[in-house]
Simulated scan of single mutants.
Amino acid sequence: MRYYEDIEIGETNEYGEYHVTKEEIIEFAEQYDPQPFHVDEDAAEESAFGELVASGWHTAAMCMRMLVDGPIEERASMGARGVDELRWKQPVKPGDILSIRTEILDKRVSESDPRRGYVDSRLEGVTHNDDVVISWIGLGMIALRNPNDA
């Protein structure tokens, strides 16, 4: 388990391998974002994308899954305060293989609760071609191993 004290500003890591399928794109979009270019291949061909693409929210969810299975699983995570600067950079298409890259940007101990630290990190979702498709800054909360030493 990695605690606040174990995390260094500037630390970078890569995680995951998520295979995106047409079926999953349509299933997610039908439930949460039923715009034509996410649910109908013919309509998608006539859209600005020219083909079926994943919802940006689906892209975020796929990256979140890799984040939970990667660094969050390894850390004494206490959740998050939110995200800043969420950007969809390029569409995700069936057949893409996604992974994530993370970089620790900042950390500080909470003034209101010295048992937790705030760790801000940049996440980029990238395809197998190294195209950045999504980015955000996660505002994580991580338990301190030794809160009395902070």
Results as ranks from 00 to 15, higher is better:
His128Met: 11
Asp130Arg: 10
Ile137Leu: 09
Glu41Ile: 13
Asn13Trp: 14
Leu139Lys: 15
Gly16Gln: 02
Gly50Thr: 15
Gln35Trp: 09
Ile100Phe: 02
Asp120Lys: 05
Met64Tyr: 09
Tyr18Leu: 06
Glu74Asp: 15
Ile100Val: 11
Val39Gln: 03
Val53Trp: 01
Val83Lys: 03
Gly117Pro: 04
Val53His: 02
Gly95Asp: 09
Asp42Pro: 05
Val92Glu: 02
Val132Ser: 07
Ile142Glu: 02
Trp57Lys: 04
Ile142Leu: 11
Phe28Glu: 00
Leu144Ile: 07
Ile72Pro: 03
Leu67Asn: 08
Glu85Pro: 03
Pro91His: 05
Val132Ala: 08
Leu52Cys: 07
Val126Trp: 01
Glu14Tyr: 05
Val83Asp: 01
Asp149Leu: 13
Val83Leu: 11
Ala150Phe: 08
Arg2Thr: 12
Glu8Asp: 13
Ala143His: 11
Met78Pro: 04
Ile72Arg: 08
Tyr118Ile: 14
Ser99Pro: 05
Asp130Cys: 06
Ile7Tyr: 00
Lys107Cys: 03
Val132Glu: 05
Glu51Lys: 14
Asp33Leu: 10
His128Ser: 14
Leu98Lys: 00
Asp106Ala: 12
Arg65Gly: 02
Glu103Val: 05
Gly56His: 05
Glu8Thr: 12
Ile9Cys: 10
Glu24Ala: 07
Val20Trp: 01
Val119Ala: 02
Thr21Tyr: 04
Ser121Asp: 11
Thr127Glu: 06
His38Arg: 06
Gly50Leu: 10
Ser110Lys: 05
Thr59Asp: 06
Ala54Lys: 01
Met1Val: 14
Arg81Tyr: 11
Leu98Glu: 00
Ala80Glu: 09
Ala143Phe: 13
Ile137Cys: 08
Pro94Asn: 04
Leu67Gln: 06
Lys107Leu: 04
His58Arg: 06
Gly125Glu: 01
Phe37Gly: 01
Gly56Tyr: 05
Ile26Phe: 00
Tyr4Phe: 15
Arg115Lys: 13
Ser110Leu: 09
Tyr3Thr: 07
Asp106Arg: 12
Gly138Lys: 03
Ile104Met: 12
Val68Asn: 13
Glu124Gln: 13
Met66His: 01
His128Arg: 09
Lys22Asp: 02
Leu123Ala: 00
Ser77Asn: 15
Asp42Met: 11
Glu74Arg: 13
Gln35Glu: 13
Gly82Asp: 11
Asp69Val: 05
Met78Gly: 10
Leu52Arg: 02
Val53Gly: 02
Glu103Leu: 08
Val20Ser: 00
Lys89Asn: 10
Trp57Met: 12
Glu111Met: 09
Thr12Gly: 07
Ala44Phe: 02
Asp131Lys: 15
Gly56Met: 10
Asp96Glu: 09
Ile104His: 04
Val68Lys: 12
Met64Pro: 02
Ala76Asn: 07
Tyr118Leu: 14
Phe49Leu: 07
Trp136Met: 13
Gln35His: 13
Ile142Thr: 15
Asp6Cys: 09
Ala44Leu: 08
Asp131Val: 09
Ser110Val: 10
Glu51Asn: 11
Leu105Asn: 04
Ser121Gly: 12
Glu74Thr: 13
Ile104Ser: 03
Gly125Tyr: 01
Ser99Tyr: 13
Gly82Thr: 12
Gly117Val: 06
Gly10Gln: 10
Gly10Ser: 10
Pro91Gly: 05
Pro147Gly: 10
Phe28Asn: 00
Ser110His: 07
Tyr18Ser: 03
Ser47Ile: 12
Ala76Thr: 09
Leu105Val: 07
Phe37Trp: 09
Glu46Asp: 15
